[in-house]
Nucleic acid binder design. Structure first.
Lengths: 201, 201
DNA sequence: AATATTAGTTAACAGTGTTAACTGCATTGA
DNA sequence: TCAATGCAGTTAACACTGTTAACTAATATT
């Protein structure tokens, strides 16, 4: 009888309930203030009950990261999709803006994924379809732009890594140091994106 | 009689002893593994004794940051000083390389200063001579390069911020994600620095 | 010499992640 | 149907964390 199947579903439901509570707490209180006891309290269980569903706190973190990374990919793809132009240079530019926008719109997730737990990224992505991973997406756009003559022909992987570095730089600095006397934000971002493209031309 | 003076010196000595122990522990064990009790143990005092000399752990952190930032400035200035050329473009380039080198040579300090506690930077620098602050240094080199016609004339502050962003990007990514399939390091850094300069040309 | 100051101590609080031992209920096998 | 097993969820506890309060003992001031 399907009692085993049902049990499996119940476990999955409980896991979901736990990570939902974790996500909610994380978004309101910030990750460093999310404790096992607080998660448990949120769903009316004892803290140790969680350990029947997750080996430890890190496993919950991984799910948080997955959640954020999914939002990240959506933002990236939407950013490119919203770009009317068929010009691969314009489309590349759109993806660069989309990356920064994700960071500014979801600073907690950006910090969690790209600043505090970058070393976990492999673990977060392993189950994803390769074609959908952020860096692959960027590399493809760079290749297209090179083939079209919009960018000078370099090693596309290195060029994409260079772009990522510059994107990560401006995004993480704007997020983690908002009180610095930055130039007016929009103008600064435009300047950075244009410089990045020009640097590869 | 100088008993007050002596006492003052004793206090300063004790503070020094504490932050020296903190620095040592930090460099061997990493900051997140440095606790008040471990610092105290290192200098044969009880943990609570430290609170007679520092208000809390954050005050010790600030001193750690100051220590690291002094090393950072030294590296930056040495990097420029070692540059034989008088060409402001070359000298700017030397400072960019020096920034990245500092990060790679002192990853723990780079993380502590520029990743985990960037918002404290103001506090770390307030007492320093303005002319010696890292960002001012960079801005001056950018201005010189612009005046010499090596870089196109933009807003020098924004250009310097853009350079900083790109530098921070590659440095922090290399440090916090060493296992990523980066292009061969030296070549990647060269590529990034050249792209950055070209982007401002 | 009596008093006040204070460096350094221990005990304690409130919190953290996590493990061990236990309870009571639900499913299983005879 | 009844005993046996498995296991979800509990409480208690451990070894930590930063930090405060109360105390001791030695020093400095009057």
């Amino acid at each position: 009888m399907g009692t085993k199947e049902r049990r499996k579903r119940e476990i999955e439901e409980m896991r979901l309930e736990i990570i939902e509570a974790a996500v909610q707490l994380f978004l309101t209180d910030g990750y460093e203030n999310v404790s096992m006891r607080k998660i448990a309290q949120q769903i009316d269980y004892s803290a140790t009950a969680i350990y029947k569903y997750f080996a430890n706190k890190e496993e919950i973190l991984i799910h948080l990261l997955k959640h954020g990374y999914a939002i990240f990919l959506t933002c990236l793809k939407e950013g490119v999709a919203d770009c009317k132009s068929r010009n691969p240079g314009e489309r590349l530019k759109a993806s660069l803006y989309a990356y920064i926008d994700f960071g500014l719109k979801h600073p907690e997730y950006y910090r969690l994924i790209f600043v505090e737990n970058l070393h976990q990224l492999q673990k977060v992505m392993t189950e994803e379809d390769d074609r959908v991973r952020g860096f692959v997406l960027l590399t493809e756009m760079v290749m297209a732009a090179m083939n079209e003559g919009v960018l000078k022909k370099h090693d596309a992987h290195m060029a994409a890594q260079s772009l990522w570095a510059s994107l990560h730089g401006i995004t993480s600095l704007l997020i983690t140091f908002p009180d610095f006397h930055w130039h007016e934000k929009e103008g600064f971002i435009d300047f950075q994106v244009n410089s990045m493209i020009k640097g590869l031309t």
